[in-house]
Design a binder for these strands. Structure first.
Lengths: 345, 345
DNA sequence: GTGAAAGCGCTAACAC
DNA sequence: GTGTTAGCGCTTTCAC
């Protein structure tokens, strides 16, 4: 049967002290004599005393717990970010409660309530892609619980205790296209996903602007918009290769579609990168397994998680009467040039 | 400033009722009049009343929270399992607190304490690979907190409230080798990682036994033991291909090394699977990206998480005075035959 | 340097 | 059907 765990009261009785003294001794308060502290600590050790965090949290009004709400913990991106969050939170002494919205606005709402009821001290959220209204975050703001969006944020949701960490997709795309141009590409195709998603929108814009900035025309025939998987990437590439003037470079908004393209180009006995250079986006694990290895853009997933927690911590410290909203933090993505786009001389 | 959130006492005062009535009304207790319930609910709605879980948990002695402790949330396996856990837990109405041990026994110990202090109702653990002693789990057992190991378990740690969910690696390997034999392979090589890790040990044993069962000799020259990455897999394959009698099949204990082998075989102008059939293990995402697509073994990661939570739930329900320890649940892995091992006729 | 007392917000016996 | 009371385990003022 369960040995009831030792409580502060138990320690107090055994040592003939008051609960308050025990509590103070355990938290190493200044005005407890060293002698007493020693006795208390020793007994605590012996009885395997473990403080009841729930009680302490209730009393203090602080739970030492951060809430995390992500669309899901699958794929490449979110696990990495969550890993960054969990690691940094542990370092700063926070527990982490994790919920998934499953890309559903309703579940998101419920989970936010849940986290608030659990008295988390701050919340880290990446929005479900179906979320359209933000009433549930209103409550968070009213309670003045620090809120940090990461990756997927609400653009116009301001508040003194609301902030965000995102990665600069535009910049990443711009770097890719610039790199391809430097490699001598002049007809650079682009694979993009649905443009109502900001990630694709921003990468697409980076593509256009980089071309223009380098004096190249934007050819709408070289832009393919589809559901970004390997099969569709292959399909799109086949179409491009049929063009009278085929592209000599491809920037794909994700790695999966890029792999599809890579396979098609190779199958047609064209060389990568000499005939067609290819760059993906996200730096998925498999990018270094392809032949040739696929250039891609690292989104700094772990860094994003880490930064988000640090930001939250800062907001917690600065207290409720801070001035303006902190500016969103924009992480610089990192272009990783591998064989698929590095032309030999 | 933070509007203090409405409490039960607040509702009670406003409605001229007692806190207990409010509490009962909110939890839809039988002996509160419908009229009262309606009034209470309406006011609760208006004031956006949210119950303080901490207080309720403290009072009830039940936190409604499960603790999860994994080595890390990176790679392929753990994110998937965690996803399964989180999804199932949410379905059953549990919150989830997640910690990482970073493969470090000390952190594991600390995290276990942390979870217990947080009054989790049950704990799901996958062991750090450095864990040698199990004192920290002793405490869990003494408190009679249900404990479920998944994937990496302690073999001889029994207890009425301890159980485990694992996948049958031996069986998976056995299936692979049987399949290769059915495809006509007679010289089947094996890549394995360090044999003190049970996953590799079991897969290795499955390999040997399957060969023997089908009347094939176990040739030690066809077994390579190394750190299982792509490079080393390629290296090992090169060695094998130099043998006077080269292998006509390869069973790799993970997918990464299998990809290395695949690339080498192709580079030497041998055909996969006709000349050399290759099968990996884990069903990583990239297995369907290779050319030819790599056969592999699905470890049912999500199912494992789901099953672990269900098991925990069962243990919680059956109460502290159950009889023997539940038997470990062994999941059947699933062989996925893809192009790399399916010989055409 | 230590103790007494109050109370965080909730629930559950027990009364009526 | 509703109210009264007590208390989960802890921290913290205030008193000495």
């Amino acid at each position: 049967m369960a040995n009831r765990r030792a409580s502060i009261t138990d320690l107090a009785k055994t040592l003939g002290l008051s609960p308050s003294t025990i509590s103070r001794a355990l938290s190493d308060h200044d005005d407890v004599s060293e002698a007493t502290k020693a006795r208390v600590r020793q007994l605590a050790e012996e009885l395997h005393y473990q403080p009841n965090q729930l009680a302490a949290a209730l009393r203090r009004g602080r739970s030492n717990t951060l809430g995390v709400l992500v669309p899901h913990i699958t794929g490449h991106f979110f696990p990495q970010v969550v890993h960054g969050i969990a690691t940094e939170a542990a370092k700063l002494g926070f527990n982490v409660m994790i919920c998934q919205s499953n890309e559903d606005a309703q579940q998101e709402q419920k989970n936010i309530d849940l986290l608030m009821n659990s008295q988390v001290e701050g919340i880290l959220v990446s929005l479900a892609n179906t979320t359209q209204s933000f009433g549930h975050f209103e409550a968070v703001r009213q309670q003045n619980i620090p809120l940090v969006f990461f990756d997927r944020m609400v653009e116009d949701f301001q508040g003194s205790n609301v902030s965000a960490v995102v990665v600069d997709d535009y910049q990443g795309a711009y770097q890719v296209v610039t790199h391809l141009i430097e490699q001598g590409c002049t007809r650079i195709a682009h694979f993009t996903g649905p443009l109502h998603l900001s990630i694709h929108k921003n990468r697409h814009q980076g593509y256009r602007d980089a071309l223009t900035a380098h004096g190249l025309p934007v050819d709408e025939d070289l832009i393919a918009c589809f559901d970004m998987n390997q099969k569709n990437g292959a399909q799109a590439m086949r179409q491009f290769l049929k063009l009278p003037q085929r592209p000599d470079g491809v920037f794909s908004s994700n790695d999966l579609a890029a792999v599809g393209a890579l396979q098609v180009v190779k199958a047609q006995r064209l060389r990568v990168p000499e005939d067609v250079a290819i760059v993906g986006f996200s730096n998925e694990m498999f990018t270094s397994l392809t032949e040739p290895m696929l250039s891609s853009v690292d989104q700094r997933c772990e860094q994003m998680g880490k930064t988000a927690v640090q930001l939250l911590q800062k907001m917690l410290k600065s207290g409720p009467n801070r001035v303006g909203p902190p500016k969103p933090i924009v992480l610089k993505p990192k272009l990783l040039v591998r064989e698929s786009s590095q032309k030999r001389r």
